[in-house]
């Protein structure tokens, strides 16, 4: 299809406008789209991660625009005021509370970056005292039950692996103690 503006080049961009509740679709070449103020979100990426994030987070540029036009509220972190849209652009969080605010949206993203969305490493010193490990196991089991109920099997698999690694650590610890006796 030819570009509707210059009528010379092939159109590569399809723009969806909503004007007075009427949907207007324009098919334009890249240059003419830029003249109308449309830039691909991938044009001016400050660093490669943003590229990755934008690709992962925005379903499609047109549908995002529509959502904003309709006035859907963006998620905003109550501590640092970062919005989810802003995070997808920057690729950086503003504070620890962002993780809590964007929790559900982050699980898929983290799985894509790391192949998992669950931490399996050490606990901070303030939490790692005895007793916490057992509580942690119970909490994880409850989470696992909930994930299975919600049919979120990717998360369930992550949780199952994590519980397994905790149990293994526990056993190794007991073995060690036995040896020491």
């Amino acid at each position: 299809m030819r570009c509707q503006d210059c009528k010379e080049k092939d159109s590569t961009v399809s723009m969806t406008h909503i004007i007075n509740n009427e949907k207007v679709i324009l098919n334009l070449c890249r240059e003419c789209a830029a003249k109308r103020g449309f830039h691909s979100p991938l044009d001016s990426i400050p660093f490669p991660l943003a590229n990755l994030l934008t690709g992962m987070l925005s379903p499609a540029p047109s549908s995002k625009k529509t959502a904003q036009a309709v006035g859907l509220p963006d998620l905003t972190c109550s501590q640092c005021q970062l919005t989810f849209t802003e995070f997808s652009r920057l690729g950086r969080f503003g504070c620890g509370n962002c993780y809590n605010t964007f929790r559900e949206k982050l699980q898929g993203l983290l799985r894509k970056i790391h192949g998992s969305s669950l931490h399996r490493g050490k606990l901070p010193p303030m939490l790692s005292e005895d007793g916490n490990a057992i509580k942690e196991q119970e909490r994880l089991q409850a989470e696992l039950d909930r994930a299975i109920e919600a049919e979120d099997f990717e998360r369930a698999a992550d949780l199952r692996d994590k519980i397994k690694s905790l149990v293994n650590e526990d056993e190794a610890q007991t073995e060690k103690e036995k040896e020491n006796v």
């Binding site: 991660l49 994030l53 690729g91 950086r92 969080f93 504070c95 620890g96 993780y99 809590n100 929790r103 982050l106 993203l109 983290l110 970056i113 790391h114 969305s117 669950l118 931490h119 399996r120 490493g121 050490k122 606990l123 901070p124 010193p125 303030m126 939490l127 942690e136 909490r139």
Partner: peptide, 25 residues
Amino acid sequence: IGRLMEYDYDSDFGFLTACPTNVGT
């Protein structure tokens, strides 16, 4: 240091960092 100040930590995501590529450990 972790005994002297409380780290940003989440039981799902681990140690929380500015960039999502560092989170966890």
